[in-house]
Design a protein around this nucleic acid. Structure first.
Length: 183
DNA sequence: AGGATGATATCC
DNA sequence: GATATCATCCTC
């Protein structure tokens, strides 16, 4: 009997972004030889969400957010950090989930308690922008069957400019997990 | 509290 | 073309 990895399929990602963000907790991200368990996420919606990159409508950088679910959206910010996002929603509807923190499972040595840190620890760069997590040989998400202990919902980090969307409870993390980026 | 360090949005 | 801003992290 071969080992059975339950890779998340297109249907998992092609749902409302907030739902996908919550359910990505406790899933395992595989990138090449590295494996890490998601412990913190944030949902970024379409043009109406004043905190989302999609608020500028479809541009060169963010067009992936308007495309098919299950694709990787990586962007570079503050001159040093890569941010890992996974596209959600049906085709043509913008939305993506920012992975803010993961817990090392295999071959991950550096700190992973923050969006800039986890990409550095796993070696994720702009090279991965546009990769299809449903079809790639070296980048995918696995449903290990484990369930998050207790899920916390708070407002998102670093988006104080977003008006009424500042207070949306679209940040999710595993309560008490030591790898969450902050309380 | 402030600096790093580059891409992008939004002005002139 | 210039400048302000950034879904951050590190050092002081």
């Amino acid at each position: 009997m071969t080992k059975t990895l339950t890779r998340l399929d297109r249907k998992f990602f092609a749902r409302p972004t907030v739902e996908v963000a919550r359910e990505l907790l406790a899933k395992n991200i595989h990138f090449r030889d590295k494996v890490a368990r998601v412990v913190e996420t944030e949902a970024y919606l379409g043009p109406e969400d004043l905190a989302s990159h999609a608020r500028f409508n479809s541009r060169k950088r963010n067009q992936i957010m308007f495309g098919s679910a299950g694709y990787v959206y990586v962007y570079f910010t503050y001159g040093m950090y890569h941010m890992l996002n996974i596209v959600a929603e049906e085709e043509g509807q913008a939305g993506a989930v920012l992975i803010r923190a993961v817990e090392p499972v295999s071959n991950v040595e550096l700190a992973t308690n923050g969006p800039g840190r986890l990409t550095r620890a796993m070696g994720i760069t702009m090279q991965e922008n546009g990769v299809d997590l449903v079809g790639s040989e070296e980048f995918w998400v696995e449903d290990s069957g484990s369930v998050p202990e207790e899920i916390m919902e708070t407002s998102r980090v670093g988006i104080g400019y977003a008006g009424e969307y500042r207070d949306k409870l679209w940040r999710f993390y595993v309560k008490g997990n030591p790898f969450v980026s902050r309380v």
